[in-house]
């Protein structure tokens, strides 16, 4: 997928005779091709810390939602306003979904913050990448790069989300059934088979992080590439169905991310002996 980015870098120096380092970014725009980059580009530096465009957008989303929450807090009433109504509807939707997995409203309310925040953050990270201007407004600093980039199209963001989610799920499991009992799921010396199963469980936690992060990253990044290329080939009206598709994919990916986190929470908080019970347990 970065082939389009790599080839000009290699070809240009031979044609123009300039060094690759200075020409890399210019080439992409002079050639008129879509700007595709696998990683988020740094926009400015704080000390040695390079602030990337996706971090900027993620922080913007954080500030937006925090300020809405803080300013709307005083307006929360028994008789809901418009914003509160929308938010309540959304929470009821999430709670119903959680009820179907956890089977208990109190448990749902207990784990609501994690699941709902994942849903909101991921969904709006996906959608903000589709806003006009994001990815198309260029910033000509030390490197020419889009000023904003969808956070979900940056592996740092998805990996951070995945790691935090998996760690939180394990912590919740440890709180729910006791740290010692929970550790017994991974380190079990009762017999060799159980020990091996424990090792596999441990590996699967790592695999979960990888699949969580690369699923989201792959879907959203592929969507961005798709939109960029379709927009490059036929700039008017043709990208519209693809835009709809990406809006849908963004919501679905957020739902899948939070649903999987929810299912893992449900598995982690049930006291069990084998993975078979756990898969049936949350469905009740």
């Amino acid at each position: 997928m970065s082939a389009g980015q790599e080839t000009p870098i290699k070809e240009m120096p031979t044609e123009t005779g300039l060094s690759a380092e200075t020409q890399t970014t210019q080439v992409e725009h002079e050639g008129g091709g879509p700007h595709i980059s696998l990683k988020a580009e740094p926009i400015f530096h704080i000390g040695s810390f390079a602030v990337t465009n996706s971090l900027i957008l993620a922080t913007l989303i954080l500030v937006l939602f925090s300020s809405i929450a803080i300013f709307a807090r005083k307006k929360i009433k028994i008789i809901p306003g418009k914003l509160q109504n929308v938010f309540e509807f959304f929470l009821e939707f999430i709670l119903d979904m959680m009820d179907s997995v956890l089977g208990d409203r109190r448990k749902s309310e207990k784990y609501l913050p994690l699941i709902a925040t994942i849903f909101i953050f991921v969904m709006f990270s996906n959608w903000f990448g589709l806003l006009p201007g994001v990815g198309s407004i260029m910033f000509y600093g030390e490197e020419t790069a889009p000023l904003l980039r969808a956070p979900s199209a940056d592996l740092n963001f998805t990996l951070a989300l995945a790691v935090v989610t998996v760690l939180t799920v394990n912590l919740l499991g440890a709180f729910a059934i006791g740290a010692f009992r929970y550790a017994g799921k991974f380190l079990n010396f009762s017999n060799p088979i159980n020990f091996f199963v424990g090792i596999i469980e441990l590996v699967s936690e790592g695999a979960r992080m990888i699949s969580f992060s690369f699923r989201l990253f792959g879907n959203i990044f592929a969507g961005e590439v798709l939109l960029a290329i379709v927009g490059f080939l036929a700039p008017y009206l043709v990208p519209l169905p693809f835009l709809f598709l990406e809006v849908f994919v963004g919501a679905i990916q957020a739902l899948i991310f939070s649903m999987l986190a929810l299912v893992f929470v449900a598995i982690a908080i049930t006291d069990h002996h084998g993975p078979e019970d756990a898969k049936h347990e949350p469905a009740h």
Partner: peptide
């Protein structure tokens, strides 16, 4: 990014 997420979660 992780701090962003945790902050949003807490807020």
């Amino acid at each position: 990014q992780a701090a962003n997420f945790l902050l949003l979660l807490v807020v």
